[in-house]
Write a protein that binds this DNA or RNA. Structure first.
Lengths: 190, 190
DNA sequence: CTGGAAGTATACCGGTCTGTTTAGCTAGGG
DNA sequence: CCCTAGCTAAACAGACCGGTATACTTCCAG
């Protein structure tokens, strides 16, 4: 399944995508030019365009790969969670994720803020990811016999997205912990 | 108090700030050039630089004015709310705000996504705004005799920020309504 | 009536952006 | 042995960026 999201990538392409991911996430997509990516990854621009076609394709490759890693991490935490602990485990995944990523919030939301084209694939990907998490919450709640899994899943998603934002903006200590606590209380009630 | 946030602005400056606000919010800050603002507002670039000094100053003027309008709207809704209805009223304000603004989420959060400079004033302003809302929630909860106003205020803020994001990304019907409902339940419990 | 503030019009600056092109090097497999 | 994929090197194109300069007009208040 790793080979599926990263299909036979040449060493140079791999290096380009890695450095581009780092640069895009921390400095913003529009603020990072192709020349900088080339120079940082020790590759000529030609190689970038040969492998990825355009900056836009490179951006989407970055977002898709990152999204894939995030989903895998969530699934891993859910799978390792004891009975009745699956929902809080999602927030554990988030805590681990943000600790590793640095505090710049959700890459998809940030990309959406930068790329405003109404038909750009980044919009589809962002909507898809949130829909996936919503569906995941719904399933977990249903499995635990919640009375109204759909409505409660939305509330969990709100807590989750709020935690991502506030963990970024800061000033609020332990936003993710607090969200996890609220999520657990919601599960217990449902 | 309106004259305080908009101190003696010349007609051209007023027009520039209005069109810049619209363009910045809907198309993104980096994607909108000074030339476009000049052309759209029917003003020469010289006028823009005479009035605002730089694009950066214009951006900050846009964000500060917008933030001021948002806070005023929240205060208005809180003031008009009946007893025990102040917290849900904040979410009514948000609903009215997003209905008028269009679905592009929080301007400050979006600006933060675009402008990554660690010392840029946009970071201060964003942190300040969230801190203000957090303090507002805390005050309201304390006035209603909540047991742990600080912790519950954080949870309200998470619901609020989550609602802003999900209302933007869409796919989730009635994110703000759902947040309002959860907020009311939290107030009743506290 | 006169001076200064506000604004228009237009041209220009150096720099950076995405994307392309031409040329040549290297290593591995049929 | 040679062909091709993968890569380096370096220049180039055309557009757009934020910002500045010069010169002219309009209008109101002291």
């Amino acid at each position: 399944m790793t080979a599926d999201t990263a299909p036979r990538m040449t060493p140079a392409a791999r290096r380009v995508l890695d450095t581009a991911s780092e640069l895009f996430y921390h400095r913003g997509i529009n603020a990072v030019g192709v020349d900088l990516i080339a120079e940082t990854s020790g590759v000529t621009k030609k190689t970038i365009y040969d492998r990825f076609g355009s900056k836009d394709h490179l951006v989407m490759a970055y977002l898709r790969e990152r999204d894939g890693r995030w989903r895998a991490l969530v699934e891993h935490h859910i799978g390792a969670a004891g009975p009745g602990e699956a929902v809080p485990a999602v927030f554990d995944a988030l805590k681990e994720w943000t600790a590793a990523s640095g505090d710049r919030g959700c890459a998809l939301i940030n990309a959406r803020a930068e790329i405003t084209g109404p038909n750009h694939p980044v919009r589809t990907l962002a909507a898809e990811e949130k829909q996936w998490l919503l569906g995941r919450f719904t399933g977990l709640l249903r499995a635990e016999g919640a009375a109204d899994p759909d409505a409660d899943a939305v509330e969990l998603l709100l807590l989750h997205e709020g935690a991502v934002v506030m963990n970024d903006v800061g000033q609020v200590t332990g936003a993710i912990d607090r969200a996890r606590l609220a999520a657990r209380r919601l599960v217990d009630r449902a």
